[in-house]
């Protein structure tokens, strides 16, 4: 059935294309949001991803799975977006997130524990966002999205060694920032020093 849909999508039937890619929509959304950090940019990137996929469906050879293919396109779209963001400095990622006004409800445990979890995630996210894109992107793909080194290397068109070292350095940097902010799992959020992220020890 997938073959059939693919054939029709290649022939220009947008409905078939929609049926094919909708199963991967959430994955694309996640990676876009993880990489760009706010809903507005993520939505743009998702649209752009779908458009590129649609226009390039003819070149999809079926060597990778459709999911992997879409994921690659999404990462490439997000990298473009980050490059543009760098080219014209705007508001920082943290600001964007605050404007986003997102407050994810926790699905597990009691309210107190949920609050603690939420606080911790925010602290980690904040620390992660204070890293450079160079470290943050591979680290996000590796540790948040759980992608193997080889795939990240391919996605970012970098040698595997470079990807590994960037991830390691990113992890170390992140651990230092979190230590410095006095934040570790279980520590009360009030201990955290509010203010700008600390880059150096």
């Amino acid at each position: 059935m997938t073959e059939d849909l693919l054939r029709r999508a290649r022939a220009g039937d947008s409905r078939s294309f929609e049926m094919l890619v909708t199963t991967h929509e959430q994955t694309v959304w996640r990676v876009c949001w993880q990489m760009l950090g706010n809903s507005e940019d993520a939505a743009d990137a998702l649209q752009q991803t779908m458009l590129r996929a649609w226009q390039g469906i003819g070149s999809f050879r079926g060597e990778a799975t459709l999911g992997t293919w879409l994921y690659r396109i999404a990462v490439s779209v997000c990298l473009d977006a980050l490059r543009r963001r760098k080219a014209r400095p705007q508001v920082s990622m943290d600001q964007l997130r605050e404007e986003d006004g997102f407050d994810p409800p926790s699905r597990e445990a009691g309210p107190e524990q949920a609050l603690e979890q939420k606080e911790d995630r925010e602290a980690v996210r904040e620390a992660l966002n204070s890293l450079s894109d160079e470290q943050r992107v591979p680290l996000t793909l590796f540790a948040v999205d759980q992608r193997p080194y080889e795939e990240i290397a391919e996605l970012l068109s970098l040698p595997v060694g470079t990807v590994k070292s960037r991830i390691s350095r990113g992890r170390m940097q992140l651990a230092k920032i979190l230590r410095e902010n006095g934040n570790y799992p279980g520590a009360a959020a009030s201990k955290r020093v509010k203010g700008g992220p600390i880059h150096e020890l």
Partner: peptide, 12 residues
């Protein structure tokens, strides 16, 4: 902790 961020993504 980083893996926990997966839960952090708002709905589409």
């Amino acid at each position: 902790r980083l893996a926990g961020l997966r839960e952090d993504v708002p709905p589409m």
